[in-house]
Design a protein around this nucleic acid. Structure first.
Lengths: 111, 111
DNA sequence: CGGTTAATCAACCGATAGGTTGAGAGTACC
DNA sequence: GGTACTCTCAACCTATCGGTTGATTAACCG
C-alpha cells in the first residue's frame, strides 16, 4: 500500500484471514478484544494490531467501556468494496459462463 | 498472506492501485504487457511482477502469441469477492436505510 | 546471420506486515 | 492502597512486497 488510497487499505485489511474471521465474528454482534482473540492461537497483542488495521480501514469502531474496548463492525467500507466489484459484474453476468464462448464474444465486443 | 487461502490472494492482489488500474484497463479488452505498462511511470519488470500477482490470484490469464503475451481478465475471482461481500449486505441494508438505494443507483449508472 | 522488439528471470534494496516478548496504562474490586 | 484484569505501546525479528538494474529467452525482420 504505497498510497493513502482508502480503498487499498480496505482490500489490504481484508487480505488477511484472521481479520476476515474477526469481521465474521463481529457481524453477529459486538465483542471485546479478549472475546475476539479467544479463538486464535496468536497473542493478544497481535489481535490488537489486527484491530488497528481494521479500524484504520474504517471496517470497525472501538468504544471504551470501563476496562473493556467494545468493537463493532462498520459496514460502509464493505459497501464501497461491493460498489467497486460491481463495475465488473457484466464480465461474468452477461452471457459467458463457458471459457469457449468468452474469447470469441469478447473479440466481437471489441469490434 | 500466511496461508494458501485463495481468497486472501485475491484481496491482496486488489489492494494495489496499480493492479486495480490494470484490471480496469483489461475490463475494456485484452492487451499486451507493453500496452498495459504504458500509462505507468514504473519499469516494465515491475508491471510483469504485478501481472504475476494477478495471474496467481486467478484474476487474469496470459496467452503467448508470437513475441507478445496477450492478457485478459478472468472474472471468476471477482465474482467470488462479490459473493463474500454479499454476506455483509444486511449490515448496511438493515442499519443504514439512507444508503439503501446506493447499489441500485450504481447499477443504473453503469448501464 | 545479426539486430530489434517483447517479455521474463535474477539479484538486490528499502519499507512494511505479521508475529513475538516485555513493559506500561487504565479500571475495578477487596 | 494493593492486586487482578484488560488492552495498548514499544522494540525486535523474519518474511514478503514493490521497486530497481542487468542479463536472458524468444520471436520477428532485413
Amino acid at each position: 500500500m504505497t498510497t493513502a488510497d482508502p480503498i487499498s487499505g480496505v482490500f489490504a485489511a481484508l487480505a488477511d484471514p484472521t481479520r476476515r474471521a474477526i469481521l465474521a465474528r463481529l457481524a453477529s454482534g459486538e465483542a471485546t478484544v479478549n472475546e475476539l482473540a479467544e479463538p486464535f492461537p496468536i497473542s493478544l497483542q497481535a489481535i490488537s494490531k489486527h484491530l488497528n488495521v481494521l479500524e484504520r480501514a474504517g471496517l470497525i469502531a472501538r468504544t471504551r467501556e470501563a476496562q473493556w474496548r467494545r468493537c463493532r463492525i462498520e459496514p460502509a467500507p464493505l459497501r464501497d468494496i461491493a460498489g467497486w466489484v460491481e463495475q465488473y459484474r457484466r464480465l461474468w453476468e452477461e452471457r459467458y459462463d463457458t471459457l469457449g464462448g468468452y474469447l470469441d464474444d469478447l473479440q466481437k465486443e471489441q469490434s
